[in-house]
């Protein structure tokens, strides 16, 4: 029983982590909250759904196309809601992304309708027992994808020139510019990668729950934000761990106290952790 609950919590936590990776990358470079991340996640999921359900595209191909589309959306998101406001107060960007988020949610509502949609993936949703604990194939896929994305992102951040530029900008945008970093392109690139990751998370989550609907990005967006803060803001592995802690604490609270208060308990844990570690679990001192 307890073992199964831990697996349940881990699976839930990984779904948060997956969303948090892209969110954290975008936050890291500008130090700004992107309220539209959840909607990019939703749009990515819907693109994959449309390709598979209406055009009969292979699931894997649809997954890749949805990622590409989300990346493109990230580019435009940065162009519309972030670049013009780069010198404005952070709250301005927040409201701009809120506007985009509201628009996209209702746009999807009109295009795809408010109903919940699904796609059939018999293999992915099948499950097997391992020592009395039930594990489904898609949970394994999510685990592998999360690890791969995290690892790939660390490679990009620490081994490529773009990654170097991204890290430089997140340290000091002005100095990076003076050192010859192409700030505009690098920031745009960060949004493309971050949003592509968001789209990937959306497709996987849609498949995992078997549910695609216009408001599907709202909760994960919120939880990604919390996971990121728990993990210390700029650290991607930190965000992944933050997501897992969130997932496990919610699941256990639901299982051993009441599912009615599980979200309240997870927020309580968040607040307690922050009171003891005011910079998050793996955070370094940083003035955002």
């Amino acid at each position: 029983m307890f073992g199964q609950q831990i697996v349940n919590g881990l699976a839930l936590g990984l779904t948060y982590s997956l969303t948090a990776i892209g969110f954290t990358l975008i936050f890291g470079v500008l130090g700004l909250i992107n309220f539209a991340h959840g909607e990019v996640y939703m749009m990515g999921a819907f693109i994959a759904f449309t390709l598979v359900a209406f055009l009969g595209v292979n699931y894997f191909v649809a997954f890749l196309l949805a990622i590409a589309f989300s990346g493109l959306m990230g580019y435009f998101l940065e162009l519309i809601a972030f670049r013009p406001l780069r010198n404005a107060i952070p709250e301005a960007t927040l409201i701009a992304t809120l506007g985009v988020s509201t628009f996209l949610k209702e746009f999807a509502n009109i295009i795809w309708g408010p109903e919940v949609h699904t796609i059939n993936t018999p293999f992915l949703s099948s499950s097997f027992a391992l020592g009395g604990i039930q594990i489904s194939v898609i949970q394994i896929v999510i685990l592998i994808v999360s690890v791969l994305l995290m690892w790939g992102l660390q490679l990009i951040l620490y081994k490529t020139k773009t990654g170097y530029a991204i890290r430089a900008i997140s340290q000091d945008m002005g100095a990076s510019y003076l050192m010859g970093v192409n700030v505009d392109n690098t920031i745009a690139m960060t949004f493309v990668i971050g949003s592509a990751l968001g789209g990937a998370a959306g497709v996987l989550m849609g498949t995992y729950y078997g549910a695609f609907y216009p408001t599907m990005g709202y909760m994960p967006g919120l939880k990604a934000f919390v996971a990121m803060v728990l993990g210390g803001l700029t650290s991607i592995p930190g965000a992944v761990i933050g997501g897992i802690i969130l997932g496990i604490s919610e699941t256990l609270a639901g299982a051993y106290i009441s599912a009615g208060v599980q979200d309240a308990i997870s927020f309580l844990i968040l607040i307690l952790i922050l009171l003891f570690f005011p910079q998050g679990l793996s955070g370094k001192k940083r003035s955002a």
């Binding site: 029983m1 199964q4 609950q5 349940n8 919590g9 699976a11 839930l12 779904t15 729950y209 549910a211 909760m219 919610e250 699941t251 256990l252 639901g254 299982a255 009441s258 599912a259 009615g260 599980q262 979200d263």
Partner: peptide, 20 residues
Amino acid sequence: EEKFNPGTKDYTNILTKIKG
């Protein structure tokens, strides 16, 4: 007797509990 809040879509913890 288990409840969940509106908006929840992961019921695995309460299901596991009920299974027992």
